[in-house]
Simulated scan of single mutants.
Amino acid sequence: MTDEHRSHPRDFVASLEKGLKVLLCFERKHSKLNLSEVARLTDTTPATARRLLMTLQELDYLHSDGKRFWVAPRTLLLARPYLMSRPAPQLAQPVLDKLADRTRQSASLGLLLDHEVLIIARSTGRRTLSTGLGIGSRLPAFCSALGRAVLSTLPLEEIVRYLSATPLDAYTPKTVRDLASATEQVQHCRTYGWAECNEELELGVRSIAVPITSVAGKTIAAVSLSVRAERMSMDAFRQMHLAAIQEARDALRATINFD
């Protein structure tokens, strides 16, 4: 974030921003990182990265073996204030549990966050997926069903601008990577009311998502369901479970004020 986009740049603590970037660069594919990797992922100098890492280790937010660093259990405290004080995750859980139990699949609720979708609630059905997703997981918006659904009610120019600024990385050989196709997938949701991801994030996993809109018609979140590809085709998936996802969407929209 640049100074021109900050409301009060004089009150902005850049070192805090850098420290949070360090914590956020740890994820499933980057579970343990060395100093140079952290510097590259956070776009800081090695000297700055070292000071940040050592400070976070001293505060017990990171552990280290002397070469690599990984997050410590204390980092869970950073998510607790949101989970405990905001109503959305708590109110959404029974709805997602009902959807997962009814379909025997995994259900998720996500919000748009920069160029990703942040999962704020999730329920795993009896047929557990191997994706390792949970509350706090992030998915690329351009090729996930959740992301496409959340983007779907934006004006076309805004969609193109958003996707143009997004790295279209390949997660599987089936990932859509060109701007025209990525835009078309979002447009599909605008036309039909649902978005899909057919093995683009993980081979063997299919997802369908529907947007959750406010009274003013703005997409504020999305709810999705995921299945193993060997269990059913995308057509069968839609026929069997789309109505249930839409019912969950209606229940979430009626009970939750997303803020």
Rank of each mutant, 00 (worst) to 15 (best):
E158R: 11
E158V: 10
E158H: 07
I159Y: 09
Y162W: 13
L163Y: 11
L163S: 12
L163E: 08
L163F: 13
S164L: 12
S164T: 15
A165V: 10
A165S: 14
T166W: 09
T166C: 15
P167V: 06
P167Y: 01
L168A: 14
D169M: 13
D169W: 06
D169C: 11
A170I: 11
A170E: 12
A170P: 04
A170Y: 03
Y171A: 14
Y171V: 11
Y171L: 15
Y171C: 12
Y171R: 15
Y171W: 15
T172K: 03
P173R: 07
K174Q: 13
T175S: 15
V176Q: 04
R177F: 02
D178A: 09
L179D: 04
L179R: 03
L179K: 02
A180E: 10
A180I: 05
A180D: 09
A180V: 07
S181A: 10
S181C: 04
A182E: 03
A182F: 05
Q185L: 06
Q187D: 04
Q187Y: 02
H188G: 07
H188R: 15
H188K: 14
C189I: 03
C189M: 06
R190V: 02
R190E: 01
T191A: 12
Y192T: 13
Y192E: 10
Y192S: 09
G193K: 15
W194A: 11
W194P: 01
W194G: 01
C197D: 15
C197L: 11
C197W: 13
C197S: 15
E200M: 12
E200S: 09
E200R: 09
L201M: 09
L201C: 08
L203C: 07
L203G: 02
G204W: 07
V205R: 04
V205I: 13
I208G: 06
I208P: 00
A209S: 08
P211W: 03
P211R: 00
I212S: 04
T213C: 13
T213A: 11
T213G: 05
T213S: 12
S214A: 14
S214M: 09
V215C: 13
V215M: 14
A216Y: 04
A216L: 14
A216R: 01
A216M: 09
K218V: 14
K218F: 07
T219N: 06
T219W: 00
T219M: 05
I220V: 11
I220D: 01
A222K: 02
A222M: 10
A222I: 06
A222R: 02
A222L: 08
V223L: 01
L225M: 11
L225V: 08
L225T: 05
